[in-house]
Design a protein around this nucleic acid. Structure first.
Lengths: 169, 169
DNA sequence: ACTAAATAGTCAAGCAGACTGTCTATTCTG
DNA sequence: CAGAATAGACAGTCTGCTTGACTATTTAGT
């Protein structure tokens, strides 16, 4: 986690003897690049959502939407998804409630729980976030081409086990 | 930013007519995967650094080290690098100072500025973070193989413009 | 050269998002 | 059917970050 600049000259890495140390530096570039890419992505999505007229929507909201979309989710489930306590999730849902992005109704088969679902407004934000995300992805296509992006997606799919989506937005 | 599960069936995307909508869903998977991968990476590095005996080192510290390493950096530069105010950067440097990871001396050509540099202890943490990052990257190699990882790095290098390294650790 | 604007850093106060701890209501387990 | 586990809310607190105001130094304009 020291050098970012040498990420470009990965082409002629044909040396075999000194490959061990070279490989280290090369490998070190991967996390750095991933993190940087994710950060850029987050910024782009954030900006895109805002540009579409939704102010004050934070990354954590977007990640919550991901979990809520579909059949809805309970507060504990949202908390689990985001990797925060249920108290934090509760606060977050409260805010989404106030902003009109979600509604909470009594859970069909658990009287303790609340089922949080998206409102039309909530779906609108979700669409905006999706659009922004796709827009960002299309820039990647523009640079790398469809084939490489397809491979990229395939590779990432193999590596990523459905982990938490931390608020790194 | 709705579906994550369909990221696996990217293989037979040969349909031409309905390709427009399909491509959307496919593209949407990319940011999601990237974000998830980055999140996992951050957790892994964090855990790795801790496992090597450095407790209480946060992601933001690691990103600060990246900037400080080499010729050192001023507080404003560190803030810029992290995407926070210089006040926040100042607080962060204060903490690193207290923990003995950095020292600050007067800047050689600007009496207003302080030059923050790593101590031996700071370099030790940096090495630990590097090792943890490489370890995480090697898991990727184990899954994808060296060739794919090399391509991955090459692709990411082309897409990532040296942006901020936000505290998404 | 000299003033005016910009910049590096600090101090102080406030805020927002997260945490722990505690509680009630409901459900699951044996 | 009793006891443990779980969903959620309420209260209090902590921490990392922000804005605002200020000093010291450097850079730019005339």
């Amino acid at each position: 986690m020291t050098e970012l600049t040498e990420a470009t000259d990965t082409t002629d890495a044909t040396a075999a003897v000194t490959a061990a140390t070279d490989r280290r530096g090369e490998l070190l570039a991967l996390p750095l690049l991933m993190l940087s890419a994710a950060s850029t992505l987050v910024d782009a999505i954030q900006a895109g959502v805002e540009a579409r007229g939704f102010v004050g929507v934070r990354p954590a909201h977007g990640f919550a939407f991901v979990r809520i979309a579909g059949d809805g989710a309970t507060i504990a489930e949202i908390g689990e998804h985001l990797g925060v306590t249920k108290q934090a999730a509760s606060q977050l849902v409260d805010e989404l409630l106030r902003r009109g992005y979600v509604v909470s109704s009594r859970h069909p088969r658990d009287a303790r729980a609340k089922l949080v679902t998206l409102t039309e407004q909530g779906r609108a934000v979700t669409r905006a976030a999706d659009d922004a995300a796709i827009e960002a992805a299309q820039e990647w296509v523009a640079v790398l081409g469809e084939e490489r992006v397809r491979e990229l997606i395939a590779d990432l799919s193999r590596v990523v086990r459905a982990g938490k989506l931390r608020p790194l937005w």
